[in-house]
């Protein structure tokens, strides 16, 4: 079986990339191929990258509070492009109350502050579709 490929992406204007970079490194250390998008990605850019790089997972990180718009944009566009096999997960400062709506939109899991990185690795290894 091939390697798990993950796109770690920062949508919107938020510049807090500490978490995204830590997760990217941790996933690499777990043997995955991680594509890091850099900052300020639009939903279009994220989905095009996911398609070209043929990733199994899109990990979105956002601390600005704009997740209800920007995470949902990415999930909606993924559906439009038939990426139902791509696991979309999110992390950042995300209030508990918002999680059900995000899940409904297509974000499989949400990881808040204080999540150990192994938990994210484990989640991906368990739920990735290959």
């Amino acid at each position: 079986m091939g390697k798990i490929r993950v796109l770690v992406a920062k949508p919107g204007l938020d510049g807090h990339d500490r978490g995204a970079k830590i997760v990217a490194r941790a996933l690499r250390d777990a043997g995955m191929e991680v594509i890091y998008s850099g900052l300020h990605q639009t939903a279009d850019q994220i989905i095009t990258t996911a398609i070209q790089e043929d990733v199994h997972v899109i990990g979105l990180s956002l601390l600005s509070g704009a997740h209800m718009t920007l995470f949902v944009d990415v999930a909606t566009l993924a559906k439009k492009h038939d990426l139902q096999n791509v696991l979309i997960i999110g992390g950042g400062i995300i209030p508990e109350d918002d999680i059900p709506a995000l899940k409904k939109a297509g974000i499989s899991a949400v990881f808040g502050p204080g999540t150990p990185v192994e938990k994210i690795v484990e989640y991906i290894e368990t739920y990735v579709k290959r």
């Binding site: 919107g12 204007l13 938020d14 600005s64 704009a66 920007l70």
Partner: peptide, 18 residues
């Protein structure tokens, strides 16, 4: 807010959701 920090008006496309 972020659009202001980046010098965008509220109605700029990059300001979406922020």
């Amino acid at each position: 807010d972020y659009p202001t920090l980046y010098g965008y008006d509220t109605d700029h496309p990059c300001a979406r959701g922020e």
